[in-house]
């Protein structure tokens, strides 16, 4: 069982802990092929999703995961709660404690919010994405997808392409994948690359064509069109020209390479439809694996 109260990021999680979560997730995934997918392992427990930012898949995924484990769930969205009335994060957290919540999944636009919450509540806190910081369960589901396909991480070449600067998914993946022995290369224009990112233990490239050569995993990231207005790249067309993941580019990767993307995708921008819907695309498998990983994390934290 995980010997920690919270899962706030992968930076300070060990390779052993990651393996434990992935192994447990694989067990959970076996349930999915059963007629009755539900267990009662967390019956009598409550899980709350506390989302200060919009989300469809992460929130639904956690909610589904908790329900499949037999837990009761509740959901708080910033736009429809006391948060609108000015309640602080700490007060909201303490209220959830008083409501006997066992685990809180928080998503917040401000980095470090899950840490602030964790310090102030008794409930287990799971980071569902904070600012540009981390999104640990997304990286874990990416890793489960890779692990299921390749059986190991050692020596795998992973290319993560796109808006690295604003991506918590990229950061969590760099920590997690490099801990497990994969070689990660971050690719994007210099304006979308965070400062000194190579010091995280990965490579940096501005050339996607070069980077995808021999890659086993190519991961695209969502590009927000607002970044163009902010002057970070000149046009969608030029972005797609240099950083769009197309079938042609994917052909340069290893023949059994897989394409990942955390979604939602912008067709024709960071991914061509041909690539997104092609045989190497594991995007929907990722979504399915997300439920298994979140079941594993919820169970290991709450029962640990």
């Amino acid at each position: 069982m995980l010997k920690r109260k919270d899962l706030l990021g992968l930076m300070d999680v060990s390779a052993e802990e990651i393996m434990e979560i992935l192994d447990r997730a694989r067990e959970m995934k076996k349930l999915f092929s059963q007629e009755v997918k539900k267990t009662n392992s967390l019956s009598g427990k409550t899980v709350c999703t506390l989302f200060y930012e919009n989300s469809t898949r992460t929130k639904t995924s956690f909610d589904t995961a908790a329900k499949l484990l037999g837990a009761s769930t509740s959901a708080i969205s910033a736009s429809t709660s006391s948060i609108q009335k000015g309640e602080t994060l700490i007060d909201t957290g303490k209220t959830l404690d008083a409501l006997m919540t066992d685990a809180i999944v928080i998503r917040h636009s401000a980095a470090g919010s899950p840490h602030l919450l964790a310090k102030n509540v008794k409930a287990h806190v799971i980071n569902g994405g904070d600012g540009l910081h981390e999104h640990p369960t997304q990286a874990l589901l990416d890793m489960l997808t890779i692990y299921n396909r390749f059986g190991s991480f050692k020596g795998l070449k992973v290319v993560i392409a796109g808006d690295i600067k604003h991506s918590r998914v990229a950061r969590s993946n760099v920590w997690g994948l490099s801990k497990m022995g994969a070689e990660v290369t971050l690719v994007g224009p210099a304006t979308l690359m965070p400062f000194d990112a190579d010091r995280m233990g990965c490579k940096i490239s501005y050339d996607l064509d070069e980077a995808v050569e021999g890659a086993n995993i190519v991961m695209g990231l969502r590009l927000q069109l607002e970044r163009q207005q902010a002057g970070l790249f000149p046009s969608a067309a030029e972005y797609h020209k240099y950083y769009g993941i197309t079938e042609k580019r994917l052909a340069k990767a290893e023949s059994d390479a897989i394409l990942l993307h955390p979604g939602p995708i912008n067709r024709g921008l960071e991914l061509s439809s041909g690539a997104a819907d092609g045989e190497s695309s594991f995007i929907l498998e990722q979504v399915n694996n997300g439920v298994a990983v979140r079941m594993a994390v919820l169970e290991l934290l709450i029962k640990g």
């Binding site: 980095a111 600012g131 540009l132 000194d196």
Partner: peptide, 13 residues
């Protein structure tokens, strides 16, 4: 400060 620590903390530099 814009630097490695800003990058890994996910805070704008």
């Amino acid at each position: 400060n814009e630097g490695f620590n800003a990058t890994i903390a996910g805070l704008k530099g």
